[in-house]
């Protein structure tokens, strides 16, 4: 199977938010109504029941011009995924579509993925079992893997009326993206294709109209070495020696330490300032 990606050309987005409604509709997600934000933005960022959010940024350009920048924010489906490396239960994995999905039978709601995600786009949802006892599961955009398995495109892509969102063969999309980039450079001199190689690329690739930091994205994200070591060496070894539960406790300490050196958010800031 050829590699497919979801591509987000933010310069085509008109902020209609059909993608947000389509996502909640397909995934049957409840509303999470936030306080009035002072702008058009409905949610400060994605949350456990809101897997994509359109951010609105009234941006003053370097030469004093004005651009109203929109971005469809959701999980990027990193090829080297920090959430997957952080998970002590092996609940997070890559599918054959390149999407990063969470197995809710394995997820124990520890929240390591939420603290370690490179883009801060996975959150814990709280549910109640039939005895009224609370439990938590990590939730985020699935790239609509359930739809992909049926030969359907992601729900947000189908809803998008401007072709800001497309899902297609990687080679084709990236070639088109280069052409589009050349075309918009005059208006957006800082435009770039965001497919960070420090994490070996992503399965949701952006064409951004300005520097990643303008959109609150890290310029050069990496998965910290400590985290790779934790996943690929310490965890298997530890589990063999001390059992899974002890390793989860050790993990909590390490995950918090790792959070500090996630790095890259230099000028980030809130998207909709």
């Amino acid at each position: 199977m050829a590699d497919y990606i979801k591509f987000v050309d933010v310069t085509k987005c008109d902020g209609c938010r059909a993608c947000m409604v389509a996502c909640k509709n397909w995934n049957d997600l409840p509303t999470v109504t936030e306080e009035y934000s002072g702008s058009y933005q409905s949610h400060e960022k994605v949350n456990a029941h809101t897997w994509n959010v359109i951010t609105y940024n009234e941006h003053t350009t370097a030469n004093g011009g004005f651009e109203w920048l929109f971005r469809h924010q959701s999980c990027l489906h990193c090829v080297e995924a920090a959430c997957e490396k952080a998970c002590p239960e092996d609940a997070i994995s890559h599918t054959k579509f390149g999407s990063v999905v969470i197995d809710h039978d394995k997820c124990v709601g520890c929240g390591y993925c939420t603290t370690n995600c490179t883009f801060d786009v996975v959150e814990l949802a709280t549910y109640k079992d039939k005895n009224g006892k609370e439990y938590r599961k990590a939730q985020k955009c699935t790239l609509c893997t359930d739809r992909l398995e049926q030969g359907l495109q992601p729900a947000c892509v189908v809803a998008c009326h401007t072709d800001c969102l497309v899902y297609d063969e990687k080679e084709t999309v990236l070639a088109e993206a280069e052409k589009r980039l050349a075309k918009i450079k005059e208006r957006f001199p800082n435009a770039n294709i965001y497919n960070p190689q420090g994490i070996k690329g992503t399965t949701t690739v952006y064409l951004l109209a300005d520097k990643p930091s303008v959109y609150g994205l890290p310029e050069n994200p990496k998965v910290p070495l400590s985290q790779v070591v934790w996943k690929d060496y310490a965890q298997p070894l530890g589990k063999a020696m001390f059992g899974a539960t002890t390793m989860a406790v050790v993990g909590a300490v390490i995950a918090n330490a790792m959070k500090k050196d996630k790095g890259g958010h230099e000028e980030g800031g809130r998207d909709h300032e």
Binding site: R17, M20, V21, K24, N25, P30, T31, V32, T33, Y36, Y40, S42
Partner: peptide, 12 residues
């Protein structure tokens, strides 16, 4: 419609 009310919830 909850999903629309959620997006624009306040008169401004």
């Amino acid at each position: 419609v909850p999903w629309l009310a959620e997006l624009v919830n306040n008169m401004f």
